[in-house]
Design a binder for these strands. Structure first.
Lengths: 291, 291
DNA sequence: GTCTATTACGTCGCCCGTAATGATC
DNA sequence: GATCATTACGGGCGACGTAATAGAC
């Protein structure tokens, strides 16, 4: 059974004539006759009685006609739907992400997303969350993945993905003791981590000295590992592979902002960005029912 | 878009491999690759991402897969359903009918039924209703069309189709007057018409003389037209084309049995007979909605 | 090195078109 | 005689198979 046969059959019934159907289909009449004949032979029934002047549906023909219409209709629907999804599959997507993402597997997300949407050109930009939010404002990135600080401006919308904790990291073999006089490594003033450090130190009753300024979490860890000082940082980064450091849990750990998906409020996400947002959220769910 | 492409695509996804799908389909792998490629080209989207070791559905592929399964499932259903109807289309059907059928167009019914069920071999047997009922008892006919008399044995089931009236027919130019001394033409004793004649005459206070016995309604009319006598008969027969007679309505016309479809109670109708029964009943309805 | 998908290429099938025949009004 | 469907026959497109190539583990 071929689609062509169903199309021809429907046309013959609709026009009530092999000749008119053939004209409508832009083919010769014998082709129509042959296909109808083949269909009848395969199904083993007569579909319509020909009287050279008029055709009439048999009971089997009536049944087939109804089913054929359904099938052909669904086929048209498939073409439309796939084309619509295809439009989403096109386009560009720029994602901004900080280094510290905790349990969020950005690499895996990008890989599976690219498999599911190979037509979308992906670009990734990393940096501190403040810089990335600036890129969001300027329309340079569609979505930002990073820590969501408490003082986040309300022109952004947030979807939380994972929690994060704060730990103290020191060089290996560094004696545990008072932190008051330790040199600290931290991000530049104005960064979220710097605020966390000050908050924690103030709670402990001292002003931290920050002689070393790093430009990213990875750098902080490298500097600490080299013995230049100590630092507070996200637990996930401290525990991930990298330069060796001693990780010390904090008794009264300040709140570290969780990792979230940020977008510009009021600016509608592109279809590609919306698809990626859903994809990341879906990936965070522990049980992923594939179908 | 071809059915073959949908089948191949579904097989590839189900097996998770071009090679296994090809083996299952009993074709070579390149044929599968080519068809999937054609499908993707026509739809303008990538359906699955190949990594030579594993295939993954894209979003468009997932959508198409769901639709394809529906369509292929419906196609299987069509084959089954048509085959089932095809079984009904086969077989033999023997119909018995009396001459007098009133507004029931048996010829038309047989013609349209044959157009709708060309695979059913039709046979028609005519005669008096008593004979036909005998044929029904002996299994020689599946259905009987004819007048349904009041004394019908309850081993038959009845579906009424049309009413019938009784008229008096006389030769042309015959003077209207008392019927007491007229010679009557009628069917043999025991027939339904004979009973009707006696009932009417008794009501009028006389015993009818029946010197002429005919073997069918048409014969009655011919004998009356020839001037041999008068008769009571079904109005439809009297008014239909044939030998000229004078039709006289009766003041106190006895009830003439209506025309009905008779079958043997307890004996299940063959599929062909059931279809014909429905067909005749449907044809009797004034408005015939074709779809 | 093995397994898998793609590309290359030749062959066969079948769908279509033209022409002739048959049937019905 | 006109119209319509069917048969007869030839050509061309396309799907399949075999073989070779490229890529992933």
């Amino acid at each position: 059974m071929e689609l062509r046969q169903l199309v021809y059959f429907e046309a013959v019934v609709r026009h009530g004539s092999f000749t008119r159907a053939a004209a409508d289909l832009h083919i010769a009449q014998p082709a129509v006759s042959a296909q109808i004949r083949l269909l009848e032979t395969e199904l083993g029934v007569t579909l319509l009685t020909r009287t050279t002047r008029r055709i009439a549906l048999t009971a089997a023909g009536e049944l087939l006609l109804a089913r054929a219409k359904r099938i052909l209709g669904e086929l048209d629907g498939v073409r439309d739907d796939v084309a619509q999804v295809g439009a989403v599959l096109r386009g560009r997507l720029a994602v901004g992400a900080t280094e510290v993402l905790g349990t969020v597997d950005l690499g895996g997300a990008l890989a599976t997303f690219h498999r599911r949407h190979p037509g979308i050109a992906l670009s990734l930009r990393t940096g501190l969350v403040a810089e990335l939010l600036g890129g969001l404002d300027r329309g340079e990135v569609d979505l930002v993945l990073g820590p969501v600080h408490a003082d986040l401006a309300d022109r952004y919308t947030v979807r939380m993905l994972a929690a994060e904790d704060v730990v103290l990291v020191t060089p290996l073999g560094h004696p545990a003791g008072g932190l008051r006089d330790e040199p600290f490594v931290c991000l530049p003033p104005g960064s979220g981590l710097r605020a966390i450090l000050h908050e924690a130190a103030t709670a402990a009753g001292f002003e931290p000295a920050v002689p070393f300024e790093a430009s990213g979490p990875g750098e902080i860890r490298a500097l600490v590992s080299a013995g230049l000082g100590v630092a507070v940082m996200a637990g996930s980064t401290a525990r991930s592979p990298g330069p060796p450091v001693r990780v010390v849990p904090l008794d009264q750990a300040p709140e570290h902002p969780g990792i979230g998906l940020l977008s510009r409020r009021g600016r509608r996400l592109s279809p590609a960005a919306a698809a990626f947002r859903q994809h990341v959220i879906h990936q965070m769910r522990p049980n992923v029912p594939s179908r």
